[in-house]
Nucleic acid binder design. Sequence first.
DNA 1: GCACAAGTGA
DNA 2: TCACTTGTGC
Lengths: 355, 355
Amino acid sequence: MTSSLDSSLLLFSPDDEVLEQVKVDIGFQNLSQDWDSYMDPVEHPLKEHQLSELEPAPAEAKEEPTPPAQKQVSVQPVANSVPVLDGWPGVHQFQVTVRRRPEQAGRQLPYVYSADGAKLYTDMMVAVPFSFTYSGVADPSALRIRALPIYRESHHIQTPVRRCAIHREPQDPSNDTGHMMHVVRADHHHASYHVEQERCSVTVPLEAPEPGTDHYQVLFKFACMNTCVGGINRRRLMLVLTLEERASGRTLGRQAVEVKVCRCPHRDWRADEKRKGSEQAQPKASKRPRREPSPPPPSNGQQQLYVVADDPAMYRYLVEARESLLRYRRSVLAEQAPPAPLSRQDTAPVKPEYR
Amino acid sequence: MTSSLDSSLLLFSPDDEVLEQVKVDIGFQNLSQDWDSYMDPVEHPLKEHQLSELEPAPAEAKEEPTPPAQKQVSVQPVANSVPVLDGWPGVHQFQVTVRRRPEQAGRQLPYVYSADGAKLYTDMMVAVPFSFTYSGVADPSALRIRALPIYRESHHIQTPVRRCAIHREPQDPSNDTGHMMHVVRADHHHASYHVEQERCSVTVPLEAPEPGTDHYQVLFKFACMNTCVGGINRRRLMLVLTLEERASGRTLGRQAVEVKVCRCPHRDWRADEKRKGSEQAQPKASKRPRREPSPPPPSNGQQQLYVVADDPAMYRYLVEARESLLRYRRSVLAEQAPPAPLSRQDTAPVKPEYR
DNA sequence: GCACAAGTGA
DNA sequence: TCACTTGTGC
Ligand SMILES: [Zn+2]
Ligand SMILES: [Zn+2]
């Protein structure tokens, strides 16, 4: 039996990390009244469409044209499976990097790799050379490398990374080579594209390093920006790279690299560096990390209420609902005692958030 | 015979303003060699897709469900017709404004109207009350008001204003009331939506002012932002408001209002005001107007070469081609003597501009 | 490579 | 309302 996204990549986790995360994310602490008024469909300004991302995408789940030999069936229990991004070299000492790091780059490349943060900054649709090292592999062709993009924040880690409406258009040049739904592309003749549980990934066969080099190089491209509206939408991205046994799909090693696909890789890399520097310099309160503070990991030892999520969809729904509530509260706070209603024609009444 | 976009709104103009504009826009002055190398499909970094906007949109030109009584046929010659935005009150003294201008606004509205510049700043999908005045109309119901969005810059004035891919999605809340293709909506029970020559507009019947007021108020909403990628795309917008004879479609009056649909109407209005102020203060070179410098209107008295555009599509094609060339030149200038080609695997070769 | 414009979280 | 982020023109 074979599996493409195997059980060590998609981790089945009833009341472990995932639920811990749910407890943290869904922080309704004795706020049942708040909850009620929030959930009242007449009172609060939410509409279902705000949760539209949660709906399973209109079955795009068809398998890509793949060499029949690699046709595979997932045996993975789907419920509560969450992608793992812990680095794990495994027996083959599987490692990843991107060559030509910034400090030695002579000419301005359309990408920068920060080795310490394991973060790649790249423009869209440029081929970035990932270098893989491994050892103790008798027959490389029996293994393959999979690249799977996921969201970094726990809030969104369960959401499949999908392309935005604009770049999904068939006439978009990024789709000249097909694989319209795939954010991550591999410039490799034997790349094969997979869609499993709504998640798009690409695999390439493992090969021996080119003569004279000690690493196997694969070119990956990214077909949406981190900022793509209706797609990645400014969320942080990780690229999970796994070494797999081709026949069984078993994971033999794993590494993850953060990827920021943006127009000015160098500028943004530099900005991150500066930020890092100033944060260390002033370990005080400093400036709050603007981007996605991500719920406090351990939190206080006090009794915590939580909502159990039965499946990923529910989890996502709840997380989203929570965020909507937070937005709602903020807006209520912001408005506070709605000013004497004007002529009732002057301004639009309760309206959904358009974006 | 009836016409919805009549001949005074769409002006037939062979060798007049339009061609003047072409002369200015297409400024190939003795640059045939430049042109050649530019047009060589192998040498230069352009691809057809960059001109994709020029292609006629996949026939969305179906008429909206409209009361049969208002079903109309256009008798308008299409070639070289260009929208007019000169204010023209006409015999009925047709005038437009938006009430509640900023200086007297107590509470922060989601829109601001600058009367002097005749410019509206508004958030997306909020109902903005336009006030119309007119006089000498015996039977208002025989007339109607049309709202047609067009691009302000001559570069783009021939391009129909279309919604972006994101807001065009059927599940977008802005489409709950239908009219998916329409950027401009009227909050009026008898609004009727038109699509003619790829241009979307909306009409409402003219009515008598509400008792006690001297103006007829109509609520308009805007269903895309000025910045919408793949749609308006940061271009400046005008809303052309025409008073029409309902039966004949004849134009009796016309006014135009610039509209900026953005997230922070007040901020952007304030910014414009400041800009205006500082520009007057320093009438010297000052800061170059960043946005769309729009080709120098009269230019020097020297012999000017120009390319004749036979029809709007060609015109648009040429304008776009010209802009592409400018981009190409800039990029060539920027690169100058391409550095010794690297390992040929490090960087992506000639690639189209992804966006 | 800089500076501006403009969406967005807080 | 402020400040940050980030696409984009030049
Ligand atoms: Zn995208
Ligand atoms: Zn839009």
